[in-house]
Design a protein around this nucleic acid. Structure first.
Lengths: 189, 189
DNA sequence: AGTGTAGGTAAACGTTCGTTCACCGTCAAG
DNA sequence: CTTGACGGTGAACGAACGTTTACCTACACT
């Protein structure tokens, strides 16, 4: 079956971090002829299973970097074999807008628990971005770094904790926004 | 400066989805000699900025796929220029344990809000894994798919909602675990 | 029985690959 | 002033590259 060949190519990509050449592909799938691998690739390219660049080299496409999106939880959980899984997405492309300015930060306290951010969560933050009203930001207030909601009322800006017991922080002079929180990632171990 | 060359290589990798050859690298950084690119790579390999495989091809290493980890929020937010940012991690490698069985699912309701899972969040679920006590699972109970805590008391298993108002579900016969929730991803727009 | 197609082997092609060698400026150290 | 290291140019090497052509089954369809 052809899909078995595809899985072998995907395995090669994961272990070598690059696509195979035709000689390597020939060895991977067990052909004795480089041309057999060439024709296999041409078949896969026509089915949109593989991509080639201008120089004929293989490129990792959707099937190599993306994950299948099944749907929504409450709307049901269809079996992947049942329907066409056309909807896929790449985690990296989805989460990282500006890779140069993106950093990872670990959450330590319970201060943002009302915003659904738990201790141990990972934050994807972007430095140098200017925050909009309602964004969660990493800010420096009175020489201490904290995570707060960024609020803008006209020209006035202030910081608001996720916990409603705390009072909003209206900075006197200096309000240094270090980074804007772009995503929250929680992994269960 | 050498780091400028590195950024150009990283840009090539992001746009072409593969590492450049020496001829391409020569063109990218503006050299007129392929050997200059070769020596540049050798310098970078010695500094652990680049990796080469057994056949001499360039490999994408930490600097191409990973994001820098700055630290924890409450512990401070050090500037990336200040210290050595040796700690990095790859989102894909961190989140995806078994790529063959990993799927993305979108959260629709508020049922798991007590577990820090909000509507609109993305779930990374793994099919076919057997859950441990306390895991969040996608289960089929009475022909409907739901997201619940998986509980195991000795030999007895049952499902528990994140909302404490609901009663635990003790299945009579059939308890089909469709998938185990491995990670929660929330992106702010 | 004859024919066409799909998928394989085998060999050859020009091109590009990674690598090496010889050579040349610039600049800091002895 | 001389020397050596460094970073670049330019040309050449064999090996591997993607691609093409020719040929060979096995099998489905008239």
């Amino acid at each position: 079956m052809d899909s078995h060949y595809l899985k072998q190519i995907q395995a090669f990509y994961r272990s070598h971090k690059r696509m195979p050449s035709y000689s390597e592909l020939m060895a991977v799938v067990g052909f004795r002829s480089k041309n057999a691998a060439y024709k296999l690739v041409e078949r896969f390219v026509q089915r949109d299973w593989l991509d080639k660049d201008a120089k004929g080299r293989l490129l990792p496409g959707r099937l190599f970097q993306d994950l299948p999106v099944l749907g929504t939880v409450s709307a049901g959980f269809p079996s992947p074999a049942d329907e066409e899984l056309t909807d896929t997405m790449s985690l990296d492309a989805y989460l990282i807008g500006n890779k140069e300015a993106t950093y990872i930060l670990k959450v330590n306290g319970h201060s943002m628990i009302d915003a659904g951010i738990l201790p141990g969560d990972m934050l994807l933050v972007e430095r140098g971005a200017d925050p909009r009203d309602g964004d969660i930001v990493i800010a420096q207030v009175d020489r201490a770094w904290t995570m707060k909601y960024f609020r803008k009322r006209g020209a006035a800006v202030f910081l608001e904790a996720a916990n409603k017991d705390y009072q909003p922080i209206h900075p006197q002079e200096e309000l240094k926004i270090a980074a804007v929180v772009r995503a929250v990632i929680r992994k269960y171990h």
